[in-house]
Nucleic acid binder design. Structure first.
Lengths: 181, 181
DNA sequence: AATCTTTTCATTATATATTAAATATATTTA
DNA sequence: TAAATATATTTAATATATAATGAAAAGATT
C-alpha cells in the first residue's frame, strides 16, 4: 500500500433540468456567468470549498474537493441554493455523480536523478528549462505522473484510489535503482 | 547601535595604467569583454567571490564583496593576474580604493503595516502591485531603504557603516508607533 | 475535427519587479 | 550639443507569475 494524499477531485453530475444561467447569476452573488468567456456559469462555495461549473442543459462539474464527502456536500448545497431560484431543481439525498479525475501527491522518499530517469525510463519527458518536474506516462492504469528531484510526485488522471496505488507502486519499482548523489 | 549585515560592497579603484581589454579577455578565461554590450570588461573571481569591471583607462569597479578585506584581496588577485599579461600593471601592498556603495540588511523585529507607513511617512513610495517592499528615502545620510511587511529592510547607497547605523535608527524612530495587526 | 475558453489542486524552479553606486560607451531626447 | 537613459556588475528582501498534468462540461474559433 502506498502513501498518498488526495489533493483534488473532479466530478460530473446532472441536475436533470435546464438552467437559466443569467437568472442564477443575477440571484446568487457567488455565481459568475460570462458566456463570452465560457459557456458555463461558475459557482464557488465556501463550505465545502468547491467550485461548480453549471451548464444550461443541467450538467454540472464539481472540482476542488479532497474527498467524495465534499463532492456530495457541494452538490447538495448548490442544488439547494439553485432550487430556491429555479423551482424545478430538487435536492436529492444521494445525488448521482461520476469521479472523472483524481489528483494526488505522494513521495518516493528519496531524491531522484531526473536526468538518469529520463534515459532509463520509456515514456518520460524532462525539460528542466520548461518545467522542473519530469512527466511520466503510465498506460495501465492510464495516468500521468509529475516527478520532482526531491522524490515528491503528483499523480493526475486517476479514476479511483486504486489507480493511484497502482501507479505509485509502479513508479517506485521503475526507479528502484535510480541513485542520486 | 543597530544590528545589520553587510551584503554587498561596491568600490572603485584605478590601476594607473591603460589596459588592452581585448588582450586580457583573450588571455584570461574569466575575463569577458563585449564592447558592443558594455565598454568595460567583466572579470569574475571565485576566491574571493567578487566581480570586477575593467576599463580601458585603468579604472576598475569591484562589487559583490561583503567586507573590505575581500575588496582588497580581490584587487590584489586581479592585479596579479592582469600583471602577468600587461607588464606595466603592478601589485600594490595597499591598493587605494573608495567605497562607493554599501548595501546592508537589517530588521525592525516587528511586522509593519506598510499601508499605514505610506500615509504616515513623507518620502515613501509603496506600490505593492509593482514591488512588495516600500521605498523610503532618507536625506541625512542620503540613503534609500526598502522596507518589507515582516520588518526586514534593505539599506542601499551608504558610504560607511555609520550611514547604515544612522538610517536604521532613524527608521526605527519613525516607525515606533506603526502597529500591524 | 481540433484547439481554445474555465475550474481545481499539488509540485518546483525561474523570472520579474526595486534600490544604490561607480565605470564608459551608444543612443535618444530636448 | 548637452543632458538623460540604456548597456553591465553585485546584493539582500518579497510577492507574484509562469511553466506542466488531468478531467469533464459547451461554446467559439480555426
Amino acid at each position: 500500500m502506498s502513501n498518498y494524499t488526495i489533493v483534488n477531485l473532479v466530478a460530473s453530475s446532472n441536475l436533470g433540468q435546464t438552467l437559466d444561467l443569467y437568472n442564477l447569476a443575477a440571484a446568487i452573488p457567488d455565481v459568475e456567468y460570462e458566456p463570452e468567456q465560457f459557456p458555463g456559469a461558475i459557482f464557488k462555495l465556501k463550505e465545502p470549498k468547491v467550485s461548480l461549473l453549471l451548464f444550461k442543459n443541467g450538467k454540472i462539474i464539481i472540482s476542488g474537493a479532497s474527498s467524495e464527502k465534499d463532492i456530495v456536500a457541494g452538490i447538495k448545497k448548490a442544488t439547494k441554493l439553485i432550487g430556491e431560484i429555479e423551482k424545478n431543481v430538487k435536492i436529492k439525498a444521494s445525488p448521482k455523480y461520476e469521479i472523472v479525475n483524481l489528483v494526488a501527491t505522494s513521495s518516493l522518499n528519496k531524491t531522484i536523478d531526473l536526468f538518469q530517469a529520463a534515459v532509463t525510463l520509456d515514456d518520460i519527458e524532462y525539460e528542466p528549462e520548461q518545467f522542473p518536474g519530469a512527466i511520466i506516462r503510465l498506460y495501465n492504469p492510464k495516468i500521468t505522473l509529475l516527478l520532482f528531484k526531491n522524490g515528491k510526485l503528483i499523480c493526475a488522471g486517476a479514476k479511483s484510489e486504486d489507480d493511484i496505488n497502482k501507479s505509485v507502486n509502479k513508479i517506485k519499482k521503475l526507479l528502484k535503482d535510480n541513485k542520486s548523489e
